[in-house]
Design a protein around this nucleic acid. Structure first.
Lengths: 236, 236
DNA sequence: TTAGTTTTGGTCAAGTTGACCATAACTACG
DNA sequence: CGTAGTTATGGTCAACTTGACCAAAACTAA
């Protein structure tokens, strides 16, 4: 479609194929400590290459859907979930990502809320893994997950992404646990509290979380949209 | 309409075509004020759709080059330049970006140094424009440039990207002018200086810039690599 | 009733930022 | 030659932010 130098016809004869994949993060309690940790669903490959290995959910882009729609679709297809946050991560196009053919993957990353994540489909070929306990994955998917985790850590520090891992109402301690899980370090409760109270997007509710073992914490609500992507700020 | 594992073959029969485009930024003195401003090269479309309008340089992805190589190639082909910074911007895949066919564009953005930029090829069909004085562009390229400018402003504030718009040696005032051009506001010279002096990647040289009208400023050098992309940190 | 724990509000020192002042060092021009 | 003009450079000060830490409030469990 652009300007042809010479061998355009050759190139177009064997175009790289295009796929959409999604890294889906959700919070689940750790089996050992019980504290929330980051998990993600993977699908088992049922054909070569990398048959039997776990891989990111993904598939081809159909002609009548946008990139983001395709990502949302394969999220729904593999887990049955709707994301509370969905953003493009990166387009991976190295020459030897797949041993059999050239594939360009446009990868999205998503966050789902724990109430949803609890209902997620799981089966012989779809299973959730702790993000920091992954074995060998198909293709370059391990590096992709690492990059997605890096992006998550970054967005967390600067942005307003933590709340999309929580339900509509949450305590400040729950937000802190998200930060501690993602950043992998302890945070001072009092200082963390002070920072959140200074952001206008966190709204106090009159409610308290009852049933805990100690002083009942106040419940808060997040008001504010993310949206810095081209896909999220103007109509595509 | 969504998942019907049936018509996979239909989809693959008409795959969206894949293109690589590049937003290339360089500093040039403003025609009016003489202060440095952000410019970028565009190419005139010589066929439909949008024939006659200006567009980002771009082209198809050939089977033996990575995405980044393709971006560097069409940068070289249209301007004759080598970038001092090159990073993936975003993959644009809206359904109606092109009126004739479905195109997914993986867009890169680049910075070139002014010594290089001065030598840039310019012709009837390749011309440089001020980034803040663009007319109507082909496709969704105007929105793409806006997003690239937003990313440039962001990277500037947090990262170490300004030096890639300058030569190897520069004065602190030149760095400040870059920030002022990109952020579009005046900065206090003394405060700005203090901040740069506190970053270890800026190295004092013994040299001074001679020939100015006033006190000769000291020359500095940038030591440090950028690199946070998947393409730039590990081998792809 | 008391011990244990979490929530919540507060202080304090160290560091950072923006506004501003003053001197140094050069050119241009009379 | 001397002085005005301009930029470079170094510094101060108040406002704000951050991390470390203290202490009271409020609940449960025993």
């Amino acid at each position: 479609m652009y300007y042809s130098s010479a061998n355009v016809s050759e190139r177009q004869a064997a175009p790289p194929s295009l796929a959409i994949s999604t890294v889906i993060f959700a919070l689940r309690p750790s089996a050992t400590s019980g504290r929330p940790t980051i998990w993600l669903p993977l699908v088992r490959r049922i054909r070569e290459p990398f048959k039997g290995l776990w891989a990111l959910p993904g598939g081809p882009l159909s002609h009548d859907e946008s990139l983001q729609d395709a990502a949302a679709r394969n999220l729904r297809e593999t887990t049955g979930l709707a994301p509370s946050y969905l953003e493009q991560l990166y387009a991976f196009g190295g020459l030897h990502r797949s041993p059999t053919q050239r594939v360009v993957s446009i990868v999205y990353w998503a966050l789902v809320q724990p109430t949803e994540a609890a209902l997620a489909d799981e089966s012989e070929n779809v299973r959730w893994f702790r993000a920091d306990r992954l074995g060998e994955l198909a293709f370059d998917h391990h590096a992709i997950v690492e990059y997605a985790l890096w992006r998550l850590r970054n967005k967390l520090a600067y942005g307003s992404v933590a709340y999309h891992l929580l339900g509509e109402y949450f305590t400040l301690a729950q937000v802190r646990e998200v930060y501690e899980a993602v950043l992998d370090r302890q945070l001072d409760p009092a200082n963390f509290r002070r920072q959140l109270k200074s952001t206008p997007e966190i709204e106090e509710t009159g409610e308290y979380l009852q049933g805990g073992k100690h002083r009942p914490p106040r419940l808060y609500r997040f008001t504010g949209r993310p949206g810095l992507d081209p896909d999220n700020r103007s109509t595509p």
